[in-house]
Design a binder for these strands. Structure first.
Lengths: 221, 221
DNA sequence: GTCTATATCCCGATAGAC
DNA sequence: GTCTATCGGGATATAGAC
């Protein structure tokens, strides 16, 4: 019989390379793998055990790098906010009115949810206690700021109006994204296109309607 | 020694009453208990084991009445649609314009999410596969129909415009509800009031904006 | 028919050995 | 840093008491 033991091909030459994560990259490998698993099974289908299995480590290994499952998900969420902000920033064009910018951003919001479903799922479906992860709140600020800029241009600085419109636009975008992921617009790329377009148009109508209502003095509450 | 055994007060007289569900009401008791548990811990915190424990029944008992956890949740979701439709119907007033009705319904949508959080949570946070529960889709139809009525009045029957506006209003309402439950409007009754008011105003602006854009011919895609 | 008892499997989490 | 071992809890399926 050959000296090969049972199922291990060539272990002697490289004590710490293939299939093992002994030198500190297990942490980032776990984050990547988490996103993979979540993309396949959703957040609620993600488990540390599954991620450990895919990386060839024991179920206890992740606890050297993360306090618990939510702690890992919080790191994924922080990365998600980073990607989200980058995607939003990529749509800014100088020769667009603030209203057009907001409409485009609402569309991109929806597209982000569809194309980075795993990340979006973690942001809004993981049930992370934000007060427990201050870094999460900090990671969200750039995103909020990107919505604030065009709204400030539109509202001229009135703080209450700014807050009002930012929330309305966010809710419009988020609602379209949530309904899309829920299947309300159908499935496939056409559904994403449709939802993106609808979100943009709804946002445009919202902004236009605000202006009209302000002109006509139809304001209460 | 008194004849009282150890911890059982009076078992001999009533063989099949207190603490037992031998006669067919375990099914409905499970639904009620599920709503209780979900209200306390959220959908993802609900388990058949916990419901069984509260009802004094074995973990296997629920499987006599429901195929699995999702099957029970689907029944809860069907009840949720019923309550939702009833709440929406309660807000209809004849002397309101279709636009005012839609705005009010968006507000009620948000209030329903807050006041019946368990039911709302099941509807949108349980991840139920709707294609697997046809009865769920049927239960949702009355709700959709309530939004369709005022929209038809507004759009004069153009099928594309009707679909467009229903989705936009739904998304606006849903977005506000989701952000409220996520804590974006703060916590407590004031947050609910604020979110309800914002959803109503955003819907009013949306409808007004649509009309304005149609007048000005600003329509594309 | 309804529930109990039981057994298997997966997951989260911790303690201690290497 | 990772592994082994282990505990508790939940989902699920089956066999059997009443």
């Amino acid at each position: 019989m050959s000296p090969t033991p049972s199922e291990e091909p060539a272990p002697p030459a490289e004590p710490d390379r293939r299939g093992r994560y002994h030198h500190g990259d297990l942490r980032s490998a776990l984050v990547d793998t988490a996103i993979e698993v979540i993309a396949e099974r959703g957040v609620r289908g993600f488990s540390l055990a599954e991620a450990s299995r895919r990386l060839g480590v024991t179920v206890a290994a992740p606890y050297r790098h993360f306090a618990d499952r939510d702690d890992l998900l919080a790191v994924v969420a922080i990365r998600a906010f980073g990607v989200f902000a980058a995607v939003l920033a990529g749509t800014l064009s100088e020769d667009a009115t603030p209203a057009e910018q907001l409409a485009a951003m609402a569309g991109v919001y929806v597209r982000f949810a569809a194309e980075h479903r795993a990340l979006f799922d973690v942001l809004f479906g993981a049930g992370l206690d934000k007060s427990k992860y201050p870094a999460l709140g900090r990671a969200a600020e750039p995103v909020l700021e990107m919505f604030l800029a065009p709204v400030r241009s539109l509202c001229g600085g009135a703080p209450e109006a700014v807050d009002d419109l930012v929330m309305a636009v966010s809710a419009t975008a988020h609602g379209h994204a949530a309904l899309l992921l829920d299947g309300a617009f159908g499935t496939g790329p056409e559904a994403v296109d449709a939802a993106e377009s609808r979100a943009a148009r709804a946002t445009a109508a919202l902004v236009a309607g605000r202006a009209a209502m302000r002109l006509h003095g139809t304001m209460d509450g």
